[in-house]
Design a protein around this nucleic acid. Structure first.
Length: 489
RNA sequence: CGGGGCGUAGCGCAGUCUGGUAGCGCGUCUGCCUUGGGCGCAGAAGGUCGUCGGUUCGAAUCCGGCCGCCCCGACCA
């Protein structure tokens, strides 16, 4: 009695996630940890990607890699260490990346002399161009279409699981072309590949368009992006594609002998998406119960939960579950069976919702009597009783419907949070409301002023947005067309 | 780099103000029980209290240094 302690009881807090409404950022972090997607590591800004999270990445990789191969690209691998001198070759490139680059100053137990130090790649344009210079001799070697899957490192000041980590995984495509037009076409083609991937597989609507000069990649002539809207109405740049022009070719003398017999610099592109996409996926679809992932990328499509009190009850249920699992797998679904007797069904329902399994199949003695099972969809929580004979086709139909529904819901959300604004006051007033389409005079000064005063940045000038002349909301000067402003990750 | 918070069992935390045997919940292990929305009972294992030093008969607790992580801002995919 005397030593009665306040024993924090098992509260909702321990079981449930913070809600998106009360704290979006906390919700995201807790979800990532509780769904076992990733852990923080002891290395600041770095994370451990756990099997549940890595499986998502593997699925993304598989699809994207197929799309790259279909468009004629080949994979290769270049070193993680880049001679520091390479980076220094291009002033703009080095100046913009310098604060983010980790430098290797010691090796072999000794300090490396100045000039022989290495940087850990923040991106690979320079070292890849070093090779390209050797590989390209003639116009017959073009186009050269290369991709690499790799890790890169950028020393970030403010890391966030998946969205911005010091080390991250990505793919970087690097191509060389004979003409400017070919390179420009490649840049836009790969941007479109990203858009297709985002929309058809991630079920995440994106706006593709051109970045402003101040948001451009260091060393590019022009940069294009796909931009998505998260559930907190902030924008997330989900992929970029760069028209590099001849900037890197000139640094590394990457030249070819043309059809005219003369030497020419190649025209280049580069493009990439990263593990940030996992963060985008989470923040686009997930809810307060946990992770929601579109079936096309889900590591697990269905979990069959066996219900029954006694071994006598469970045995026939288990046999039926195994038969059903086999049928589902035959139909191409990724299925697991949960026969753990130490956990109750309620616990399991919550657990698989947290982990983002698309379909829950409940199977118990009562179902066997009726020759049915229960199918529950993750996104809508819709629960149906389905005869076992048609369970496979029903499951497929539910997954298809879920894939469509996730995209439709995300698109509706984005569209209802996209506004045309026609004055600076309106821009300020709606700063937290989503995507704002506004006229801007095109100067970096005005762009910087808007960022300073409102926290809004330009996302891109979307291709799908008809460009009609107007007046800048800040300065009143001429504007060629509206551009998207938003808060952003 | 500035502002804030934190470091005690695998996880979440109490204990620190006011120094005196290291605690609670969850999880884990054993056994029983239970199973259609986060079951129950009994028992058990598990901690150099971030680190180094100081004060003291005695430090998780007081003092000082260091390290690390998280959150909020300035940089970024």
């Amino acid at each position: 009695m005397a030593d009665e302690k306040k024993a924090p009881a098992k509260k909702d807090k321990d079981l449930k996630l913070p809600t998106r409404e009360e704290n979006f950022s906390e919700w995201y972090i807790e979800l990532v940890k509780r769904a076992k997607l990733a852990d923080n590591s002891d290395v600041r800004g770095s994370m451990v990607i756990r099997p549940n999270g890595y499986a998502l990445w593997e699925n993304m990789q598989r699809v994207l890699d197929g799309m790259f191969k279909d468009t004629g690209h080949q994979n290769a691998y270049f070193p993680v260490l880049i001679p520091e001198s390479y980076l220094a070759k291009e002033k703009k490139h080095v100046a913009d990346f310098a604060p983010q680059v980790a430098v290797v100053t010691h090796a072999g137990g000794k300090p490396l002399p100045e000039g022989e130090r290495y940087v850990i790649r923040p991106t690979s344009e320079t070292i890849i161009n070093r090779s390209f210079t050797n590989w390209v001799q003639s116009y017959r070697d073009l186009p050269l279409l290369i991709n690499q899957w790799a890790n890169v490192m950028r020393w970030e000041m403010r890391p966030r699981l998946f969205l911005r980590t010091t080390e991250f995984l990505w793919q970087e495509g690097h191509t060389c072309h004979e003409t400017k037009e070919d390179a420009q076409a490649e840049t836009l083609k790969m941007l479109d590949v990203y858009k297709t991937f985002a929309e058809d597989f991630m079920a995440m609507p994106v706006m593709s368009g051109q970045k402003t000069d101040s948001e451009k990649f260091p060393g590019a002539d022009s940069t294009y992006s796909i931009e998505a809207m998260m559930q907190d109405k902030k924008a997330l740049q989900a992929g970029t594609s760069h028209m590099l022009g001849q900037n890197f070719a000139k640094m590394f003398d990457t030249m070819f002998q043309g059809r005219d017999g003369q030497k020419h610099y190649v025209w280049q592109t580069s493009w990439g998406v990263s593990t940030r996409l996992i963060g985008a996926l989470i923040m686009t679809h997930s809810d307060d119960a946990g992770l929601v992932v579109p079936p096309k990328l889900a590591p697990t499509h269905a979990v069959i939960i066996i219900i029954g009190r006694t071994p006598e009850e469970r045995a026939p249920v288990k046999a039926k579950a195994e038969a059903l699992a086999a049928d589902l797998k035959k139909a191409g679904l990724r299925v697991i069976i949960d026969d753990d007797e130490t956990k109750g069904p309620g616990f399991k329902y919550a657990e698989y919702e947290l982990r983002g399994v698309c379909l829950r199949v409940e199977l118990g003695p009562k179902d066997l009597e009726k020759g049915q099972c229960v199918l529950a969809r993750r996104d809508t929580k819709e629960k149906v009783f389905e005869p076992l004979t048609s369970a496979v086709t029903k499951a497929q139909a539910m997954l298809d419907a879920m894939q469509q529904a996730l995209f439709a819901k995300a698109k509706a959300f984005r569209d209802t949070h996209t506004f045309e604004v026609n004055s600076y006051d309106e821009l300020k007033a709606k700063a937290d409301d989503g995507f704002l389409l506004a006229h801007w005079d095109g100067t970096p000064e005005t762009e910087a002023r808007i960022k300073e005063e409102t926290g809004l940045t330009t996302r891109n000038r979307p291709f799908e947005l008809k460009q009609e002349p107007g007046k800048c909301v800040v300065t009143g000067k001429d504007s060629p067309g509206r551009i998207v402003f938003s808060r952003a990750y």
